[in-house]
């Protein structure tokens, strides 16, 4: 990927990522996140990983972010009331952010060696056939376990939602 493409795209994604955190309205934050996802997809596409780019858009931008947007518009969330309201949470947030930024800075300055080094791309990299072969041979067990994990999460959330609803209705009849 040419640096003439990478740096503008990377700058844009950083700007949109900042807008996610800094925007006052939750809908604008969500939009910023959509933009970050879209730019990531564009970068994947430039790196010849077309399948990953398409999946990035379908799953994150097209499904998860639409759900976010739905929740935000339906719940009619108030605009952010400023960062100072929850000092403990913001302290934790700033701490975590500082650790990540520090780690990145150390890696970029070359103090710490990154675990992965650039390697030559294998034949047919990024195509559906190659990715599918990897996923259904080498990583098959991990892939299936992940899907079971997601299923457990779905069942668990339904159970939790049902229990809260039942408790609420009991409370109403009890009163």
């Amino acid at each position: 990927m040419s640096p003439f493409l990478f740096y503008p795209l990377a700058t844009m994604s950083v700007i949109f990522a900042l807008s996610v955190v800094l925007a006052k309205s939750p809908v604008r934050s969500a939009l910023g996140l959509v933009a970050v996802m879209a730019i990531l997809a564009v970068q994947f596409a430039f790196l010849q990983a077309h399948l990953l780019a398409a999946l990035q858009i379908i799953v994150y931008a097209g499904a998860i972010m639409v759900l976010f947007l739905f929740v935000i518009t339906l719940l009619n969330l108030e605009s952010d009331r400023g960062i100072g309201e929850k000092p403990k949470l913001s302290a934790i947030g700033f701490g975590a952010g500082a650790v990540v930024a520090g780690g990145l800075a150390l890696a970029m300055l070359g103090v710490v060696e990154p675990a992965a080094r650039a390697v030559a791309l294998p034949e047919g990299f990024g195509t559906t056939a190659v990715l599918a072969r990897q996923m259904f041979n080498r990583y098959f067990v991990a892939f299936e376990l992940t899907s079971i994990l997601l299923l457990v999460a779905v069942v668990g959330s339904v159970v939790l939602a049902k229990r809260t609803a039942a408790e609420n209705s009991e409370g109403v009849t009890g009163a």
């Binding site: 398409a54 858009i57 947007l69």
Partner: peptide
């Protein structure tokens, strides 16, 4: 010419929701 032509179409179709919702 995309290796993932059909997925590209369905990805962009799913992006159409944003305009309407917003």
């Amino acid at each position: 010419r995309l290796d993932v032509g059909v997925l590209y179409v369905s990805a962009l179709v799913s992006m159409g929701v944003f305009g309407v919702a917003l």
